[in-house]
Computed example of a mutant assay.
Amino acid sequence: MSTTVNVNEDLDKKYELLSKQLDALLSGEPNLYANLSNASALLNQFFDRINWVGFYLMEDGELVLGPFQGLPACVRIQVGKGVCGTAVERKESIIVPDVEAFPGHIVCDAASRSEIVVPIIKNDEVIGVLDIDSPELDRFSETDRIGLEKVVETLIQHL
């Protein structure tokens, strides 16, 4: 048990450092796309065992592909559809251990096996989502969810 605690504590510290790095990287830059581009690059560098990381932004009532790192992706996602659209509808983060078991999962990259999506909520309105995919089953943990929610809180300060 102590090993698990140490691993989680180490991961918590890494997320804290990631949030500080993101804050410093985005400080003073007001452009949405520049900030999301740098955020996706930083997250891609931070994570191992992932194959896609990026953002979808709300536009005219649906999610539209934003800055990302990885293979080409689905361009538009309706609210309530797939993992990203469901996260918007629920206004909560979703961890999917096996995307093939998620009802209505939208396949953008057939190599993706697990996923985590964190809604970006500003002034009580969902303005987009952070989406991260992995080619491994069960890649993301509750520690990742909590850490990424803190990263998104940091990001929101620069949007």
Rank of each mutant, 00 (worst) to 15 (best):
E149F: 11
I95V: 07
I121E: 04
E149W: 05
P103Y: 07
D109C: 04
H158P: 09
D10T: 14
M58G: 04
N44V: 00
W52T: 01
L26V: 05
F47E: 00
D60C: 13
D133F: 11
I95M: 01
E100I: 11
E115Q: 14
A34T: 14
D23S: 13
T143A: 15
D23Q: 11
S112P: 08
L25A: 13
N123I: 03
G28R: 05
G147Y: 06
P97G: 08
G28K: 06
W52M: 02
L18V: 09
V96A: 00
V96P: 00
P67N: 15
L148M: 05
G54C: 08
V152F: 03
L11W: 05
S134T: 11
L26F: 01
C74E: 13
S2Y: 14
I77Q: 01
T4L: 15
L42P: 06
Y33R: 09
I120N: 02
H105L: 08
P119R: 00
P97T: 09
V129Q: 01
L17G: 11
D133L: 08
Q45R: 09
L63M: 09
Q21E: 14
I94M: 07
I132G: 01
N38L: 05
V96Q: 00
E125W: 07
G128Q: 00
V152T: 06
T86K: 15
S40P: 03
A24M: 12
F68I: 07
C108F: 10
G147E: 01
Q157Y: 02
K13D: 09
G80L: 06
